[in-house]
Amino acid sequence: MVSELSDIAGATASPAQGGAAPRDEAAQHRPADHDPAAALRRKWRSRLYRWDVKGSPYAFVSPFFLFFVAFGLFPLIYTGWSSFYRVELTNLDAREFVGFHNYTRLFQDEFFWNALRNTFTIGVISTVPQLLMALGLAHLLNYRLRGSTFFRVAMLVPYATSVAAAALVFTLMFGTDYGMINWALGHLGFGHTDWRAGTWSSQIAVSSIVIWRWTGYNTLIYLAAMQAVPSDLYESAALDGASRWQQFRHVTVPMLRPTILFTIVVSTIGATQLFGEPYLFGGTGGEKGGSAHQFQTLGLYLYEQGWTNYHLGRASAIAWTMFLLLLLIAAVNGLAARWLRKSQ
């Protein structure tokens, strides 16, 4: 992931920046040698130009970093610092330094490993279909449509639906005795499933909520990127006799590479931090993720330790472990990509 990103960064660092000189129209009409004021102005202008080219990139990225330093850095450091202490939310002042205890403890913590496993399986069964469906839907939405605004708006409604409403609806849908899904499955000859009690059934249910909630979200992201694909590419592909499917595969997907990479990165991060959907699926005391923690994700476990058991130090260690885990995934991904390229 990392190396792929830096590849893109390298590839797009085009010769354009600073390469082209400004066309000074005044200079063309009046040779500078005869007018010292103009020469000064031109000199000044070209200096301004150079400052602009050199300085503006920093100016453009600085708001993000300024706000991050003001509001993001302190929580990050505070959390990291807390992860080396025994500290409870009930008494933040009573800290006891414990070194790496909170981290080493996690290695023997079966609840942590269970949550890690669940996060992985739910992540896979929710993210892969979600992104594939989103890509397909975006392709359809990119056709000339009647009511295109309506369809676009509808796609984002799940993301906008309030959590309380979604929780109630899905609880009713996945109910054991009166749920609509069991009712429908019953007509197909299946017996009643207690969706929440089983490991796979609960993870499938949680994943389906994730897919419901985020497919439209990714669809719009893809759609925006598709809007920027020049239509003549499709036309020439069509002239070459490419079917719609072939156009999609050979024009859309390659052009969308940066955006697809973006959604993969963001979905991976989102899946690792998954919290809301399993929480609402669990009903009261949702942070446990089921009575045997069968759908407790890392996000829920972190929440349970920090906000139900008030172990702030341990929760901080979980947070930092998740953070480091994502960095590790990124690094491994990058190394693998590099190795693959070398071996080719």
Partner: peptide, 10 residues
């Protein structure tokens, strides 16, 4: 049943 669950209400 689990207390205060939807299934409990039903």
């Amino acid at each position: 049943l689990k207390l205060f669950d939807k299934a409990w209400d039903q």
